[in-house]
């Protein structure tokens, strides 16, 4: 990326960078630093002093079974939604890329769900899966309590996984399709000349070449499932029933803003940050390798 043609007027360059640096400092570095500060101190929510608490906040968080419950549920949610959203997206993208008649229409329609706000998707699926009015309502008539996410925790988890995956299916589809389209046609044609059929080509040529995209999306999906699930949960299950859908982000919000336990919420934030950073780090390293791969 070393360019030979550049400007060397340092003051103009610095001036151009100033606004973003200022914003990033105010709304990113300072809050992140504050989270660290709070995580290691004990503070009264609205004013009052704060004292150094060492790792006490973390000890408190880690000894709380409710926290481990949230971690466990976040993992279930991450794996469930990622598997569902990526698996289906890959299948649809591979078939769409065969470019049979009408593929453009499929392509267009499969992108739209990503434009739907997560909370709106949540509300929609809450209705679709509502025990009294949704698609399972008829079955509930025959067999009461066959399906009821407002009472049954597993049903509630399935509900948010499905609603979330519906939106991310579109996201993954966009990326898979773009990656497939960037595979040189000549490769696929060469494989056809070698005598392989469409399915064999998918397996032998397209899937291996999709590996970088697969990996990239895997990381993105898991990361996003940790951070982007709030809207769906809040409007679909409200974390319930009896905390069955309280994931990590939701718990941070709940402890911080409803419970006013800033220190505990900060400690939880730090744990989540480390988790997300770890995942992103893996991805950055991987992207570097991808450059060599090309």
């Amino acid at each position: 990326m070393d360019r030979r043609a550049v400007y060397k007027t340092a003051w103009i360059g610095s001036l151009l960078l100033a606004p973003q640096l200022l914003l990033v400092f105010t709304f990113f570095y300072w809050p992140t630093g504050a989270a660290l500060f709070w995580a290691f101190t004990l503070e009264r929510p609205w004013g009052g002093g704060n004292e150094f608490a060492g790792l006490d906040n973390f000890r408190m968080v880690f000894s709380d079974t409710a926290y481990w419950g949230a971690v466990w549920r976040s993992m279930v949610f991450a794996l469930g939604s990622t598997a569902l959203a990526m698996g289906l997206a890959l299948l649809f993208a591979l078939f769409c890329d065969r470019q049979l008649r009408g593929y453009k229409a499929y392509q267009t329609m499969l992108i739209w769900p990503y434009a739907v706000a997560a909370p709106a998707a949540g509300v929609a699926f809450r209705f679709l899966f509502a025990p009294e009015a949704g698609i399972f309502a008829a079955l509930n008539k025959i067999h009461p309590e066959f399906w009821n996410p407002s009472i049954n925790g597993i049903h509630a988890m399935i509900l948010i996984v499905v609603a979330y995956s519906w939106k991310y299916l579109a996201y993954n589809f966009i990326f898979f399709l773009a990656a497939l389209q960037s595979i040189p046609r000549a490769l696929v044609e060469a494989s056809a000349m070698d005598g392989s059929g469409p399915l064999r080509r998918m397996w032998d040529i397209q899937l291996p070449l999709l590996a970088p995209t697969l990996f990239f999306l895997l990381v993105i999906n898991i990361t996003d499932s940790f951070v982007d699930s709030f809207g769906i949960i809040d409007l679909t299950t409200g974390g319930g029933p009896s905390k069955a859908t309280t994931l990590m982000v939701y718990k941070i919000y709940f402890d911080g803003f409803k419970g006013l336990d800033y220190s505990g919420a900060a400690a939880q934030s730090i744990v989540l940050m480390l988790l997300v950073m770890g995942l992103t780090f893996v991805q950055f390293r991987f992207i570097e390798r991808r450059v060599h791969y090309r």
Binding site: L21, P31, A35, W38, S269, V276, M277, F281
Partner: peptide, 20 residues
């Protein structure tokens, strides 16, 4: 300094950002 911010979405640092 700018690109590190890509690593942490707003949601995970929501409480202190609110304070700012």
């Amino acid at each position: 300094l700018i690109f590190i911010t890509l690593m942490l979405p707003l949601e995970v640092r929501i409480v202190p950002t609110y304070a700012v």
